[in-house]
């Protein structure tokens, strides 16, 4: 048995046996080199109560080269791309050490959710949001946790309903101007928000998605 396979098998078994850390690693198909990790959002953060899934690819030269990870679950976080789920974390790049494991890396991801690094962002838009208004950022992050990660909406939602339509837009991580633009065509505001959020109509994505596409989605 080659060293990589033995190591990965052991790591998967370790995660199974460990009931305390709440870190789960599952096979996606029969290959032990393409896995899905998941953990719960850390407490006392906007991610609390969410269930976050991570796509894991074990490279050929693992564990001497870092494992490749990205979020499957959409996360609103300065160091995670809101579009692709790509993660900006040093141990996934040059600070990787062969003694790190899938479990320890997933725990690091979990703690990344606790302590964002807006000065070294993966998603500049989100980082800007974080820097300009932390409370508004947290509201959006909580909202994303609720709708994408199955988090409990209790914390943030009442405030949002009170806050009116402005907050609804901000919480979906959208721009008011974009929502207004499509609302002006004659679609219902909530539907516009829903569709734009689904299309991830934010930041650099706006240029990539043309208006026809949005309208098409809205008409569905």
């Amino acid at each position: 048995m080659d060293a990589r396979l033995r190591r990965v098998n052991k790591e998967i078994a370790d995660c199974k046996n460990d009931k305390t850390s709440n870190i789960v690693v599952d096979l996606i198909d029969s290959s032990p080199y393409h896995l899905r990790g998941s953990f719960s959002g850390p407490e006392d953060t906007p991610y609390q109560g969410g269930h976050f899934e991570v796509d894991i690819v074990i490279p050929e030269s693992y564990p001497f080269q870092p494992v490749k990870m990205k979020f499957i679950t959409k996360v609103y976080h300065p160091n995670v791309s809101s579009a692709s789920g790509a993660i900006c974390l040093d141990i996934l790049k040059d600070a990787w050490s062969p003694v790190l494991t899938l479990k320890s890396t997933l725990i690091s991801l979990q703690s990344l959710l606790c302590s964002p690094e807006p000065n070294d962002p993966q998603d500049a838009e989100v980082a800007k949001h974080y820097m300009t208004s932390k409370s508004s950022f947290e509201e959006t992050a909580r909202y994303w946790t609720m709708i994408y990660a199955g988090g409990p909406g209790k914390g943030g939602v009442p405030k949002a309903t009170k806050g009116g339509t402005m907050d609804e837009v901000a919480m979906a991580g959208l721009e008011k101007a974009h929502v207004d633009q499509f609302e002006a065509i004659g679609f219902e505001r909530s539907k516009v928000i829903d569709v734009l959020r689904r299309l991830n109509y934010r930041g650099a994505n706006v240029a990539k998605i043309n208006d026809d596409r949005v309208v098409e989605e809205l008409l569905k």
Binding site: A3, S61, F64, Q65, P98, V99
Partner: peptide
């Protein structure tokens, strides 16, 4: 005193130098 087996060291150093 961080001990690792010789074959891991070998692969690790080779990967550092080659890759």
């Amino acid at each position: 005193e961080h001990r690792f087996c010789t074959s891991c060291w070998n692969t690790y150093i080779t990967s550092k130098i080659r890759t």
